[in-house]
Simulated assay, not measured.
Amino acid sequence: MKQVELVNGHLRFPALLTGDGEPVILLHGFPDCHENWAGILERLADAGYTGVAPALRGYAPSCQPGSGDYSLHAAVDDLLVFANQLGGRVHLIGHDWGAAVGYLACARYPDSFCTFNALAIPPLKRLPKALLKVPEQIKLSGYMQFFQLPVAPEAWLKRDDLGGVERLWRRWSPDWEPGEYLENAKRVLAEPGVLPAALGWYRHLIRLWRKQQREAQEWLSLDVTVPTQVLMGERDGCMSPRLLDHTINTDDFPAGLYVERVEDAGHFLHLERPDAVADLLVRHLQRGECLV
Results as ranks from 00 to 15, higher is better:
5 E>T: 13
8 N>V: 00
9 G>K: 00
15 A>F: 01
16 L>A: 10
17 L>W: 15
19 G>F: 04
20 D>G: 04
22 E>I: 04
24 V>K: 08
29 G>R: 00
29 G>C: 01
34 H>I: 05
36 N>W: 09
39 G>I: 08
40 I>C: 12
41 L>H: 14
43 R>M: 11
43 R>Y: 09
48 G>S: 15
48 G>C: 07
48 G>L: 09
49 Y>H: 05
51 G>Y: 06
56 L>M: 08
59 Y>T: 11
62 S>H: 03
63 C>P: 01
65 P>C: 11
66 G>N: 04
67 S>Y: 03
74 A>I: 02
75 A>L: 13
76 V>N: 13
80 L>Q: 00
80 L>F: 06
82 F>T: 08
94 G>Y: 01
100 A>G: 04
101 V>F: 00
105 A>G: 06
107 A>S: 01
107 A>I: 11
110 P>S: 00
115 T>M: 00
118 A>V: 06
118 A>C: 14
119 L>E: 07
120 A>T: 12
123 P>Y: 04
124 L>G: 03
125 K>M: 12
128 P>I: 11
130 A>F: 11
136 E>T: 08
137 Q>S: 14
140 L>D: 15
140 L>Y: 02
142 G>T: 04
149 L>M: 02
149 L>E: 15
152 A>W: 08
152 A>M: 09
153 P>T: 03
154 E>A: 09
156 W>T: 11
157 L>D: 00
157 L>A: 00
157 L>K: 01
160 D>M: 13
162 L>Y: 04
169 W>N: 05
172 W>R: 01
172 W>Q: 03
173 S>L: 15
180 E>R: 12
180 E>S: 12
181 Y>V: 03
182 L>V: 00
184 N>D: 11
185 A>R: 06
188 V>P: 07
193 G>L: 09
196 P>S: 10
197 A>P: 02
199 L>W: 13
201 W>H: 14
203 R>K: 13
207 R>D: 07
209 W>V: 13
213 Q>N: 09
222 L>I: 11
225 T>S: 08
228 T>D: 07
230 V>W: 02
233 G>T: 04
244 L>K: 06
246 H>Y: 13
246 H>K: 06
246 H>S: 08
253 F>A: 02
254 P>E: 14
255 A>Q: 01
255 A>N: 03
261 R>E: 13
269 L>G: 12
271 L>N: 10
276 A>Y: 07
278 A>L: 13
280 L>H: 15
282 V>I: 12
284 H>P: 03
285 L>V: 15
291 L>F: 12
